[in-house]
Every structure is written in structure tokens, then in C-alpha cells.
Design a protein around this nucleic acid. Structure first.
Lengths: 245, 245
DNA sequence: TACAGTTGTCTAGATCAATAGACATTTGAG
DNA sequence: CTCAAATGTCTATTGATCTAGACAACTGTA
């Protein structure tokens, strides 16, 4: 393993943060599974070509995230390594897909509003600009860790009670059913990756420089009429997306 | 627009880099389309609550990327804003999908090797650990800008001349055809986002702290036997992935 | 031409990030 | 118990980042 791992200087990203990101990745790749612990600080410092204190800053950040735990005299143990896999298919349903990967799933409604659709929202839902839509803002978590924040939009003409039904039923699928829509399918998904903004950092409990996977998706009824447009931001270091075709 | 935009201090990511990322995102969202230019430095400094010099560092980084160009006396103009959209469907073919979005597509073979499959590679291809596979390493670019780097694996027993055929034909689809395989479909794709490592930074010509979208995919013949396993890393600030179901 | 608005440059000081070295403390193995 | 190996803590120094202020240079408009 004596291979020299590259970190770059004077790029606006502190060395300790670059190293923390690399170690986090190595953990989730299973590179350290044999021992169940991270290599000693002096070894890591040698591999990355930095001072031991710099490695310590990186490990302190990972300990803060709850990913590792350092024990004096023994070493730094890995506490948690998995990424939750989120499936995307024609029949994507949030809670079903996570299934056995997390014991307890929570979706919390942050707020809702009725507003007029323009731009992206109107064109994705196939309605005229200015038509009313219902907006739901939610945050979802698995076993207590926040996984995603979403903003979803529904044509108000067809689903007038979306916010109230969701608040009561805690499920988009059931809220649709309450409006007489029994089935729907996903017609498109666009995925980008970017740095999290301030709101996302705090809602997903991320540290600055963290990455989100943003999925913009459209669901439609079986006649092809769009019923939902949503933008979901997943904490990239906790999730992967699985495309099923 | 007087809204205060949050940047966080003491997180290991320099303020100028956080601000550069936010401005890049705003440009690609079209927030500044009306004027075709970025707001004045003093305005940005006010919005982000930092010194004007800090904003200047951010703009200098974006100018380095070729995204903006500052003109003394006038302002800072936007030079480029689009993200290339890469479609993922059952029939994903690299060059077809990019189609009209880029004028000129180049795929360059970085190298090839024959090695024994273990772990991910063996299980994805459904072959016994230790069986030989052909590895192709490629970098693809659109209109001169690198878009992705890939490592692809093919069972050597079935596709022994993969490297040579690809080198000659410059196309995976044609190289398959040369082995008697006329059609194949994508059976699964997994997507993660993470910070680029040193090799990716240099091959994709990114600046440190940049993000890659990594797609791990399996293609199979029409009988369902896997024929290709590949890991592609896309420069996240130049690409989005479009899932078609 | 005059002027407001913008980017470019310079200096100085404060704070953060990284290096270097020394030594303490804890753990597990022999 | 003894020792090697690991993490924890402290001090000091250097370079990068950020702030602050002042002023120069350029552009488009009145």
C-alpha cells in the first residue's frame, strides 16, 4: 500500500479536508475492512506526504461525523461504512426502495405553499405558466441521519388537498390515492452533483464543502399526464443512486 | 436579490472557493441570464458578507476555468454556461446520446491491459474470480473539454481482441460487433458523487475540490449475460445525467 | 468633457492552516 | 512488568487566507 496518495496545495481546499474526503471514500470502498480500523496516523501522514497533525485534523473531522472513533493506545476504529442505495426505476417509491437498508425511515414535512408555476416547474408539469401548484418541502432520514431534502410540486387544479393529505397520511402515494389516482410512474430523472448550499448543509447536517446529488424527476399517471415534479437533494457521502432499467 | 447568502468559515474550504462554487452554480442555473454578466464585485461581497478581495479570488478562479471574463470598467461577463446532458437508458451508447449538444466528440484510449478479475469486476461480469478480463482506460471529451474518464472491463474469453478492435474502430459497439455481438442493453447503473482524486483532477483538467459523478454500469447481451462492466467518472460541473425509463 | 460605476493594484495587519519537534498517556503483547 | 505502538497534548514557526482601506485605470453615458 506504500503508494503515494496525492493531495494538492493552495487550491482553496485545506489539506486536512481533502484527506478526510479520501479516507471517507476508502472506508466506504471497504479498503480497510480487513483490520476494521484506519491505518495509524503516522502511516497515513507518510502516504499523503503531510505532517501527522494534518492527518489528525482529518480524523477529528471524521470522528465528528461519527464515522470513526479514536482510542488512545489502540488506534482509530471504523464505526460506520455503508452508503444507503436509493433505487430509481419506473416505479420509484421512496420508502419501499430503502427497505431493509435502514431500520427506521422518517419523512418530515418542513412546510407547504400554494404558488404559481413558472419556468422549470410549469414546463415539467405540462401546465400553463401562472397556473397554481402545491409545493411540499420535506426532509427524509434513515435511522436518525438525514438523507435528503426535497421540494415537490403538484398541479393544484387536480390535487387541491395534497398538503393536507400528505400531512395526515405521511405518504405521497397515499395522498395521490386520496385524490383518486391509484398508480403513477416515473418518466424522467435528471441528476447533477454539486456542492451543498447553506440551507442544505444545515438541514442535512453536513460540513461545508460537502456534496449533494440533486435528482430532478417527473412522475406521470398512466395516461402520461405529469402529476409530480420534484427536486431531491441527497447527501452524497451517505447515498448512492441505483438506476434500474 | 438583497438576500444574504451563507458561506461558512473554518470548515477547511476557503471562502473564495465556496463563493466560486456558488457563482458557478448560479451561472449554470441561469440566474444572471438577464444581464449576461455577473453582479459587480462590491454587490457580491455584500451578498456573501465578505471582503471584495475574497470575491475577486473567487472570480479569478472562474476566469481560470474559462467560465467568465472580467473587463476593467465594464464588469465580469459570462463566457459559457451549459452543462452537457448524458442520457442513461437501456440502450445507452456514448456518442449517440451527446448528439447535437457538442459538435465534436473525441474518445482517446489511455491504455489497456489484461488482468484477472476479482471483487466488483468478477461479480459484475458474473465470472469466476481469477478469470481473465480486458481493461480499457479511456478519456472522452466534447469540443475539446474533457467530460469523463472511464475504466471498462470485458470477459477476455468471449472478447479476446477487445483492445485491438477498439483501438482500430474507436467504438465499443463496433468492437462488440467485430466479436459477433450485435446488440446489448444496460442492466444496471449505480451513481455516486464524490470529490475528484488527483488523477481525475489532472485528466479532466479540474481544480481541486471539484466533484465527479461516478457511474458504475453493467451491460449485457440479449440473453442477459454480462458483456461489459464500466466505471465512468464525469466532471460534475460540465455534465448532468438524464435517466430515461 | 465630466462623472458614476466598475475592475485592477498595492500595502498592512489579523486569523487560519500546516509543519516541526518533544513528550505524555493508553493499550496490548510478550 | 516491560516495551513497542498507538493516540493525546503542548509550543513555536511559517505560509496561506481574509480583512481593511486607498487609489489607479478603464468604460459607457449624459
Amino acid at each position: 500500500m506504500a503508494k503515494r496518495k496525492v493531495v494538492e496545495r493552495q487550491t482553496g481546499v485545506a489539506l486536512w479536508r481533502q484527506i478526510a474526503d479520501r479516507i471517507r471514500l476508502a472506508i466506504s470502498n471497504g479498503d480497510y475492512d480487513a483490520a476494521g480500523m484506519v491505518p495509524p496516523e503516522t502511516v497515513l501522514a507518510g502516504e499523503f506526504g503531510v505532517n501527522r497533525h494534518t492527518v489528525r485534523s482529518a480524523l477529528a473531522a471524521l470522528a465528528e461525523e461519527g464515522l470513526v472513533r479514536a482510542v488512545q493506545g489502540r488506534g482509530t476504529m471504523i464505526e460506520r461504512k455503508e452508503r444507503v442505495s436509493y433505487p430509481i426505476s419506473r416505479r420509484t417509491r421512496f420508502s419501499q426502495g430503502l427497505g431493509r437498508q435502514v431500520k427506521e425511515i422518517g419523512t418530515r414535512l418542513l412546510g407547504h405553499a400554494e404558488l404559481r408555476a413558472f419556468g422549470d416547474i410549469a414546463s415539467a408539469l405540462g401546465i400553463a405558466p401562472g397556473e397554481p401548484v402545491i409545493e411540499l418541502r420535506t426532509v427524509s432520514s434513515g435511522d436518525g441521519r438525514p438523507l435528503s431534502v426535497s421540494a415537490s410540486y403538484y398541479p393544484a387544479a387536480r390535487f387541491p388537498r395534497m398538503a393536507e393529505e400528505f400531512e395526515e397520511l405521511h405518504s405521497v402515494t397515499k395522498a395521490f390515492a386520496a385524490h383518486g389516482l391509484d398508480d403513477y410512474v416515473r418518466v424522467s430523472t435528471e441528476i447533477v452533483a454539486r456542492h451543498a448550499d447553506g440551507d442544505e448543509l444545515s438541514m442535512l447536517k453536513l460540513s461545508a464543502g460537502a456534496i449533494v446529488l440533486e435528482a430532478q424527476s417527473v412522475n406521470a399517471d398512466l395516461d402520461g399526464r405529469p402529476v409530480e415534479y420534484s427536486r431531491s437533494c441527497f447527501a452524497a457521502d451517505r447515498m448512492k443512486l441505483r438506476i434500474e432499467t
